[in-house]
Design a protein around this nucleic acid. Sequence first.
DNA 1: TTGAAAGCGGTACCAA
DNA 2: TTGGTACCGCTTTCAA
Lengths: 338, 338
Amino acid sequence: MPVRLKDIARDLGVSVVTVSKVLRNHTDISEETRARVLKRMQELNYRPNLAARALVTGRSCTMGLIVPDLVHPFFAEVAKGLSSVLRKKGYSLFIASSEEDHELEQQEIDQMLARRVDALVIASTQWTVESFRRIEEQQIPYVLIDRQFPGLAANFIGVDDIAVGRMATEHLLDQGCAHIAHIRGPEVSTALGRLEGYRGALARRGLSPAPGHIVMGRTGDDSGDVSGREAMQKLLALKHRPDGVFCYNDPVALGAMKAIFDAGLRVPEDIAVIGCGNLNYDELLRVPLSSIDQQSHAIGEKTATLALALVESKAPQRPRSLMVEPSIVVRGSTQRRA
Amino acid sequence: MPVRLKDIARDLGVSVVTVSKVLRNHTDISEETRARVLKRMQELNYRPNLAARALVTGRSCTMGLIVPDLVHPFFAEVAKGLSSVLRKKGYSLFIASSEEDHELEQQEIDQMLARRVDALVIASTQWTVESFRRIEEQQIPYVLIDRQFPGLAANFIGVDDIAVGRMATEHLLDQGCAHIAHIRGPEVSTALGRLEGYRGALARRGLSPAPGHIVMGRTGDDSGDVSGREAMQKLLALKHRPDGVFCYNDPVALGAMKAIFDAGLRVPEDIAVIGCGNLNYDELLRVPLSSIDQQSHAIGEKTATLALALVESKAPQRPRSLMVEPSIVVRGSTQRRA
DNA sequence: TTGAAAGCGGTACCAA
DNA sequence: TTGGTACCGCTTTCAA
């Protein structure tokens, strides 16, 4: 039912090729013909079938994005940043949520490869690099975001997690905290980087974490508030309880604050708390939460730019790893000196 | 570089057609041939080019979703629900964020039509129905979600907004509130429905809103907390201030709570507050916010099912409008009777 | 059971 | 400046 080049050509008594050339602004068409064709295209509201074009040009002008959880604001922001750049270049974006499931992620990768996306962006939940090999076989460029894979030479864009840890910890030090604890995350690159940054910041001032001041929440990212609460309770039970806590992420920080309040203590006077992620609700809390912003939108934009560059250059590039600088957002939960 | 039917056919000395038939499980192929073909497909990790298939079958097995803001948890949830159903049927989903911009939305619609999606799902920010006519011209089925257009006979799935308003208001009444105010939203179907439900619930008990008890926040959905705060301040300045407030959405409710705290009053003892949307942070607040859940995931799933049905049946269907029942989530902000 | 030919809606190349 | 022809990767139809 949609209008085709052929229809326009027939109506005007010209060849399909001529119409196709007008469509793509070729210069070797007379002004008169061009005008007639354009007019007819308008009248019929013609839209080229991009799938057909993709078949012959070998470019689908399509990319795929696979994230563990679309509802997580970090990934949603990345998706927005990515698509805002791609849209301007005429690209459309397939988006899929892997629900933190390796198998599903694998399936989605296959599906997108079958759709012949020009590039793939993945915030992976994999433990092995096998799926990435599959992508490489197909010669399709891909960019990993958020989580890095040690030992995999792939394009990567994410926040500099060591800087995240350092920044948060230094801020607590600057606010006069002397005993800073860390509620850490699971064994993935983001959590490990933040832990390293935390240690580094202390070391720079000749300090080191007190015994028991590095605790791990039971779970990783989700229902982080529960695990944050538990972890904080452990810290409160210590003989030397901390006066500042750097939390792996914001949900964990909220849980930690709950535990502090439950113990009848105050934030930030007794214990200062800082999280990571700068989630949209941080500002709305009774004690607004200081946090490290992960520049999710910027990550999306930079990823788009890199992916586009990879698609343009047919020669395979040496993989690039790009770290975005985090930034601190200071709110009430750490402001001890007015 | 990807493997094609032709490659497999050549390797095995059979025709392309034969391979194609094996691929689609046709029965008129000998077991022996089938086995040989399947084996080779495995070895080469063959994936059919779905774009090419789409060109000849006229089905892309692709749908489009356009929402005003992907970062908003409601739309992110809808997207998840939608894609979880579609994935099982082998469909992929283009997702675009219109950033609350009519023009962008229009562009995205055009883009997706050009990609020949099998169906389109839109949470529209349009004021006119022109873009929908464009879709109808192309004979592509579409489903509107969230916001309805009076006078447009289109498929629609959303929460029953009148029920939302009724439910919230009745809950406040049941908690013993006698003077219930409403901070309403802009002139769109969702806000109007909730207002109507609020009025209806009061009327059922022989009540009507006191003068000045229906206020409108300055802005609509975004930065709702600012407008909620302002609106609440107006309510607090009244001679007869309310003892319960039903807010258009959760950000507005947070703003309202801030204003109440600033005035030195308590929630829910002095004023009970209920929002709408059941956003993920509601539970994490100092005074957890009661809210009406909009069943976003269910909306996504039902939309997917409807869209699939529309695609299956070639005969154009009479548009269906489907209302999902909201549900109330009671938390601390309204619990006045223990 | 197998495959040759035509065609889906476009683009590339080269000759007229 | 214009258009004939071939072809992108796959499916459909029909004859062998």
